[in-house]
Design a protein around this nucleic acid. Structure first.
Length: 275
DNA sequence: CCTCAGATGCACT
DNA sequence: GTGCATCTGAGGA
């Protein structure tokens, strides 16, 4: 164990130096995207600077289209360590992404877009890279994905290490129940699952599905850690038992040793320590 | 640590 | 009607 790259997390409140790589590459062309069913005018927010003060992080570099416009598996890995930000009633709710899953599109039997099937529900999977795909599941829950390069390909966000305004996130999570709080456990339990993090960040299909995360003022990503390859566990995805020969493909990624991950895969971890 | 059932609503055959 | 890219609490090893 003990990967010598300490990108992962548990250092108590220690500052890490964020390398300010001035992104010179934000000029990638972006296809136009239909936003006809959005009520708010998605005006042209292109950088965090335009967001109101109380939610802006100093030195935060917003991730742009060129970050998302890569193959699905690459995006799933690149997302690890980055911060997802959700603005709710003027409050900044955020977390570091620590676990993802890639859904590759028409070839992938576990993907909602398998065989290129396009429906009202999964339209966002076919929209430009950086589009949020939110769907309802099991009646009471929802999950969020981010579309990548490749038709129908998207990355499911499975777990976050909560960062800002944990009290508010805790309220969203425990609303309607009595007394439960995850604050005493350093926020473990708040966002360690795809639907838990949607509850914590108040992400719902109605408000977030099809939003362009490159330009939205409600949800976006910021550059945070770069996680070194040695600290990324690759293993099979969760709860896709119906997907036949795709069940065992190593398309789930998480940060080794991070306690905010939803489910560990010990065999996969053992495998990497003997290499 | 583990497995299990129940909650709950919508998209799709 | 069926089946979910889930979560929770209860009960057992």
């Amino acid at each position: 164990m003990a990967s010598n790259c300490t990108s992962s997390t548990q250092s108590r409140g220690r500052k890490r130096k964020s390398q300010q790589t001035q992104s010179t590459s934000s000029k990638t062309k972006k296809p136009t995207q239909e936003i006809s069913d959005l009520t708010s005018d998605q005006s042209q927010y292109t950088s965090v600077k335009h967001i109101s003060k109380n939610v802006k992080k100093d030195n935060a570099e917003r991730l742009d289209y060129s970050f998302f416009d890569v193959p699905c598996e690459d995006l799933a890995e690149a997302l690890l360590g980055q911060t997802i930000v959700r603005i709710c009633d003027g409050k900044r709710l955020s977390g570091k992404i620590v676990e993802t899953e890639a859904y590759l599109g028409s070839i992938d039997k576990a993907a909602h877009s398998y065989k290129g099937k396009k429906t009202d529900k999964n339209t966002a999977m076919f929209m430009p890279p950086g589009t949020a795909y939110v769907y309802n599941i099991y009646g009471m829950y929802c999950c969020i994905n981010i579309s990548s390069k490749g038709d129908g390909a998207a990355v499911l966000i499975r777990a976050l290490q909560p960062l800002d305004n944990l009290e508010t996130m805790d309220e969203f999570r425990t609303k309607g129940k009595d007394g439960n709080s995850f604050l005493k456990k350093e926020g473990v339990g708040l966002c360690n699952g795809p639907s838990k993090l949607c509850q914590s960040l108040n992400i719902k299909k109605d408000s977030i599905n099809k939003l362009d995360m490159c330009t939205s003022d409600q949800i976006w990503l910021e550059k945070n850690d770069t996680v070194c390859k040695d600290a990324i566990v690759k293993c099979k995805r969760i709860n896709i038992g119906y997907a036949e020969d795709w069940v065992d493909k190593p398309l789930r990624f998480y940060i080794l040793g991070n306690k905010y991950v939803s489910v560990r895969d010990k065999p996969a971890e053992n495998e990497m320590s003997t290499k």
